[in-house]
Simulated scan of single mutants.
Amino acid sequence: MPSTSPVPSASRHAAPPYSLSGARGTAPAPDRPRTRTDPRAWAELLRISALFTVPGDALAGAAAAGHRPGRGTVLAVGASLCLYEAGMALNDWADRAEDAVDRPHRPIPSGRITPGAALAAAATLTASGLALAACAGRPALAVATGLAATVWAYDLHLKHTPAGPAAMATARSLDLLLGAAATCGAPGTPPAGRASR
């Protein structure tokens, strides 16, 4: 008696741990209209569940600089979140051809988000992150610009090269430095060891 092939079952459960659609994270059925504004698809593309790990870098940078967290720190957190999300959208845009073969359930190859929309989101989030950093002062903007450049370089080219790990380490270091630069550069931010009298 011929055995039943396990391939279809395996493909139905191939969604990665961060997928919000679980076992049904495969491409939509042909008779189902594809939407470009599905919140779950955007949450999956931007890895919303990982956002809670991002603010710690800015806070650690502020603490390392010896200043109390303030307005600049909040702006640094916002900029860091925007640039992180830009990296997530850009990552899936850059990997769309590979994902179409190996991970067809992801938002772009499954048709739930168009490549153009993902790239536009990456550009918009990058601009938003730089704008927030600019509000914290020129030093913060300079660091955020370097961070944004590192993120784009990593996603578009470096991640598949030996320089990939170094680029990731650079991005993390710049994220810490962003918190320090934004906190120190914001007017009226007292050092941590001096209480205002």
Score class of each variant (00 low, 15 high):
S11Y: 07
D31M: 08
P6Y: 13
V7P: 06
G25T: 00
P28H: 14
S9G: 01
A29T: 15
A14N: 08
T26W: 11
A27T: 11
D31P: 04
R12A: 09
Y18C: 03
L20Y: 06
P33S: 04
D31C: 08
S5F: 13
A23L: 06
P6M: 06
V7K: 14
T4D: 05
R24A: 02
R12F: 01
Y18F: 10
V7I: 13
A14F: 03
H13T: 08
A10D: 12
G22W: 06
S11R: 12
A27V: 10
T26Q: 13
P30I: 07
G22V: 01
S5Y: 08
A23S: 10
D31F: 14
A10V: 12
A15W: 03
A27F: 01
P16R: 09
S5K: 04
Y18M: 06
S21C: 04
P30Y: 04
P16L: 14
L20N: 05
P17F: 05
T35L: 12
G25N: 05
P33H: 08
A27E: 08
R32T: 15
T4A: 13
P6K: 11
R12T: 00
P6W: 14
P28K: 11
G25L: 00
S21K: 07
T35K: 11
P28I: 09
A10I: 15
A10N: 10
P6R: 13
T35D: 02
Y18L: 14
P16I: 02
P28V: 10
S5N: 15
R12P: 03
A15K: 10
S19T: 04
T26E: 12
P30F: 05
S19H: 05
A23R: 09
A10Y: 14
T4G: 06
R24H: 09
A29L: 15
T26S: 13
S9L: 02
G25V: 00
H13C: 06
R32I: 08
S9I: 02
A27C: 06
T4L: 15
P30M: 01
P28S: 11
R24Y: 02
P6E: 12
R34M: 11
